[in-house]
Design a protein around this nucleic acid. Structure first.
Length: 580
RNA sequence: CGGGGUGUAGCUCAGUCAGGUUAGAGCGCACGGUUCGGGACCGUGAGGUCGGCGGUUCGAAUCCGCCCACCCCGACCA
């Protein structure tokens, strides 16, 4: 490819709204172009990278497992009749992000945000016997999610490409094999793409199911929080991370309840300061509105009081799971007051007609300070069982940096990350909803046991650039670069230079390498800067100076060392360097 | 959905507070010339419904109202 003919241009100045350095480089290099909020177009160079990422993913998905099972690629529709999502109930669970449209017969469709329903339906229509299992089906396709707020360049998009694979096994043991195969395949994909990831325990959210890991690329620009144990390697998304909870009142005997005046003290900090007790000796109450799906496909809402020790925060994912709710909304102070409670002085003591969820630790504590449910009053020596009772006791506390690892009691680090991919053990949720049954060896009908496994291509691309760059531009990993070699001709208006550069380019292409040839009549600075920005692994400079020495000059992207090689062996030398 | 910010040439921005000739700069682009190893220089030139609609005014990029788009923080998030 000649740069003089290349459609996309490099930019000297960056569009002002580019957020992260990687995002800036992708736009400046002309790889991607913004179209709308959370929507991008791929320009020629960017698309070549995407194709190479997809090739790597295909190779790893198609790789055979020990029993011969392997991924098979197919392509589903993006346009999905809404009945599919109604059948799984996800027209409600994912209502906020579902792009919906109506055809001219008034039939409702969604632009597929994820395809469990469609895959299980196709599975059902094609598989009847356990002899056909296991199956692993996947596609690389565009997904649509009407995100309330796209952000961070390619991090949260409304339209993106995803590789989604679905495994169908006869039983749980089979699913375990599929899951492990995918887990290992993901490790290899990220490794080959030059992106360091950490597999972390995660929440299954709207997917449903049990075990799930997400692959996190650790970076400050990430929007997920995770906890890492530096000693034993425990890694978990903050949504599910557990930690050691140490009682603050071990061995205390319950003391009599006592009401005290606390004028104007409405925060745990102020209260603890005023009373001279640590926050861990208080119990705070937080109000939520929980929504549940009902049998008729609708929803009902209930208020919930959450009791947790004053020094901890509520983990809304854990709370949602403990309640079995499909949605959870934090109740603002105004709404709490309107509901008849006293925000800032609330507790479960004397409370009736409201569901109370307590963290497992707070019910063990003795003699806590808690709200009296009266303005400017609090209670001393509040004890669970004697003074109040929780309807649900569960771990609902948010792990923070510095809390102790539940495996090995080491203080954990809290880091931010981008979720590159996630693997789920779905079980039979979708196969039962769609009656995707097969006959087992005994002639019994059984639902397929499913897993689902996704990789977000744009997030992967963003992480690749974020992790493979310097101050001048992108440094593509060898396997991902849009072109293998960047041939720079200096003073190409001189016939001998142009001829030599053309010859080198043609010979490299004959040798099976892809070449980006800078044939523009530009000054050297412009060309070198563009070569650095675009980031091909190897640069070959043809110039009058090098021609005089009968040489071509090679430079590896990311290095500042030039190397002269004789023109007649240049192709061999270049191939050797790319291989090594 | 709440809060904040921004919309002027292909890109980055000035001009808006304090209304007043043909709305500016740099980069990019076209043409001519001089250069040539890390975003060179000189000259000439093309390029704008100042986000949209409405209003105030003799006169609006500038003031007022409504709307739209994009970005950030939060809510949300497979």
């Amino acid at each position: 490819m000649r740069i003089s003919k290349l459609f996309s241009k490099t930019l000297r100045e960056v569009p002002a709204d580019a957020e992260t350095e990687g995002h800036r480089l992708l736009i400046r290099s002309g790889m991607i172009a913004p179209i709308s909020a959370g929507v991008y177009a791929y320009m020629p160079l960017g698309l070549r990278v995407v194709h190479r990422i997809q090739s790597i993913i295909r190779e790893e998905m198609d790789r055979e497992g020990p029993d011969g099972r392997a991924g098979q690629e197919l392509l589903m529709s993006s346009l999905v009749p809404i009945e599919y999502y109604e059948r799984s109930g996800r027209d409600h669970v994912m209502a906020d992000i579902l792009f919906r449209l109506t055809d001219h017969h008034d039939r409702d469709f969604a632009l597929g945000p994820t395809h469990e329903e469609v895959f299980v339906d196709v599975f059902k229509r094609n598989v009847q016997s356990y002899r056909e299992l296991p199956l692993m089906l996947y596609q690389i396709a565009t997904k649509f999610r009407d995100e309330p707020r796209p952000r961070g360049g390619l991090i949260r998009l409304r339209q993106f490409i995803m590789k989604d694979l679905y495994s169908f096994d006869a039983d749980q043991e089979g699913l375990d094999v599929s899951y492990q195969m995918m887990f290992d395949a993901y490790v290899r994909v990220f490794e080959r793409c030059g992106v360091p990831v950490i597999p972390a325990l995660a929440d299954s959210g709207a997917m449903g199911g049990r075990d799930t890991h997400e692959f996190l690329y650790l970076t400050d620009i990430g929007e997920d929080h995770c906890l890492l144990c530096p000693k034993c390697g425990y890694a978990a998304n903050a949504e599910v991370a557990t930690f050691v909870k140490e009682p603050a009142s071990a061995g205390e005997e319950p003391k009599p309840l006592e009401e005290i005046d606390t004028p104007g003290l409405t925060t745990i900090e102020a209260l603890a300061d005023h009373l001279g007790v640590p926050k861990s000796k208080t119990c705070k109450a937080v109000f939520y509105t929980a929504s549940y799906g009902d049998e008729h496909g609708g929803t009902r809402e209930d208020p919930v009081l959450v009791a947790i020790r004053g020094d901890m925060d509520v983990n809304e994912s854990k709370l949602k799971n403990a309640l079995g709710a499909i949605d959870l909304r934090y109740m603002e102070e105004g709404a709490v007051n309107r509901a008849g409670f006293v925000a800032g002085s609330a507790s479960a003591v004397g409370l009736e007609n409201m569901k109370v969820v307590a963290d497992e630790l707070v019910v063990q504590e003795r003699n806590l300070v808690a709200g009296a449910n009266k303005m400017d009053k609090h209670l001393l020596n509040v004890n669970h069982d004697r003074d109040w009772k929780a309807d649900i006791v569960a771990d609902i506390a948010l792990a923070a940096g510095g809390t102790l690892c539940s495996n090995c009691q080491t203080p954990m680090d809290e880091r931010r990350g981008i979720e590159m991919g996630q693997v789920f053990k779905l079980g039979t949720k979708y196969s039962e909803a769609f009656e995707a049954f097969f006959l087992d060896a005994e002639g019994q009908q059984r639902p397929a046991v499913m897993g689902s496994y996704g990789i977000g291509i744009e997030r992967l691309l963003a992480a690749i650039v974020e992790d493979n760059r310097d101050e001048s531009g992108i440094i593509w990993p060898r396997e991902l670069a849009p072109y293998d070699v960047h041939v720079v001709g200096l003073q190409v208006e001189k016939p001998e230079v142009r001829a030599a550069a053309e010859t080198l380019t043609a010979e490299l292409e004959s040798a099976g390498l892809s070449v980006l040839f800078d044939d523009r009549e530009e000054s050297p600075g412009v060309k070198f800067n563009d070569a650095d920005l675009l980031g091909m692994p190897l640069r070959a400079t043809v110039s009058p100076r090098n021609l005089d020495k009968g040489s071509v000059e090679l430079r590896r992207r990311g290095s500042d060392e030039n190397e002269l090689v004789p023109t007649d062996v240049a192709v061999e030398e270049i191939k050797a360097r790319l291989a090594g």
